[in-house]
């Protein structure tokens, strides 16, 4: 790692101020950022650790019934505390990395990084969650702008994520056996007025909504509705040593069908 100054604000306000420093970078759980910095693929003059800020940790339900998860909430806390309120999300959180990683990694860190193979972006997009920062609220539909790219501006910190809890939902994940990130994973969320399907791991543009599946499922929420579809276009899918684009496109369909089946 290149050296940096570490600051540990105890409040959001202190963090916002600390982020004003030149070349400052927020540090969530560090489970992706620190390995990246160890490889010297990222650097910062000031690293602002968010882990001591209690006000951005925790889970509650707001007046609209939305599940509100603080940006500094670890995967382990979501796994444990959302098991009844939003089981599909708890299940997703419980399958990120491994137990030790889940004790550090945070939902805010995951969404800010927007790795094209991360798990949380699929849930956020499938639920059209609201990503809250110190400055504003961003709908997930407007938030994910491509691989490692989001609508976040410099110095903006994810303080909370608000999920409208679906009537039924499931996250189906097919892992890449080395990194244990999804090779392809699909989050299906069924609401009274719509079905949303978000796919991660597959596209080189990052998480995306599979519109054809959403349309088919809105009329007929069944595994068969997915099976009747063609797999999404393999062009633009990630192709690497674990699977080419055609395989990933095929997996999108398989994972989607399985997610729908599991919702039933």
């Amino acid at each position: 790692m290149y050296d940096f100054e570490l600051v540990k604000p105890a409040s959001l306000q202190e963090a916002i101020e600390a982020m004003q420093a030149e070349d400052a970078q927020a540090l969530g759980g560090g489970q992706t950022l620190l390995p990246t910095m160890k490889a010297r693929l990222a650097m910062a003059d000031t690293l602002v650790a968010l882990s001591a800020i209690e006000e951005i940790k925790g889970i509650c339900t707001d007046d609209d019934g939305r599940l509100c998860i603080g940006g500094g909430t670890t995967h382990a806390m979501v796994q444990r505390d959302c098991a009844e309120s939003f089981p599909a999300l708890a299940s997703l959180a419980g399958r990120i990395g491994d137990p030790a990683v889940r004790n550090r990694g945070t939902i805010g860190g995951s969404l800010a990084n927007n790795d094209p193979s991360a798990c949380y972006p699929a849930a956020a997009l499938a639920c059209n969650a609201t990503i809250v920062t110190q400055n504003r609220e961003i709908a997930a539909d407007d938030y994910f702008l491509g691989m490692f790219t989001t609508a976040l501006e410099e110095r903006e910190i994810v303080t909370e994520v608000r999920f409208p809890v679906p009537e039924a939902a499931h996250y189906e994940k097919f892992i890449q056996p080395a990194s244990r990130f999804p090779l392809v994973a699909v989050f299906v969320a069924k609401y009274s007025d719509a079905v949303r399907v978000a796919v991660t791991g597959a596209s080189s543009d990052g998480v995306f909504r599979w519109n054809e599946a959403e349309a088919a499922l809105s009329g007929n929420f069944s595994e068969d509705a997915v099976k009747g579809l063609s797999a999404p276009d393999a062009d633009g899918m990630i192709s690497d040593l674990h699977g080419d684009g055609a395989y990933r496109a095929h997996l999108v369909k398989v994972m989607c069908a399985r997610a729908v089946k599991a919702c039933a």
């Binding site: 570490l6 540990k8 540090l27 560090g30 489970q31 620190l34 390995p35 690293l47 650790a49 882990s51 382990a76 990395g97 491994d98 137990p99 030790a100 990683v101 004790n103 550090r104 080395a178 990194s179 244990r180």
Partner: peptide
């Protein structure tokens, strides 16, 4: 890359990978 787990310690009672935690933090 935070993969192997050889560095796991208990931090405030919970397992973490000590290779991906900053000492000062």
């Amino acid at each position: 890359t935070t993969q192997c787990g050889a560095c796991i310690v208990h931090l405030n009672g919970e397992p973490v990978k000590a290779c991906s935690v900053l000492a000062q933090e």
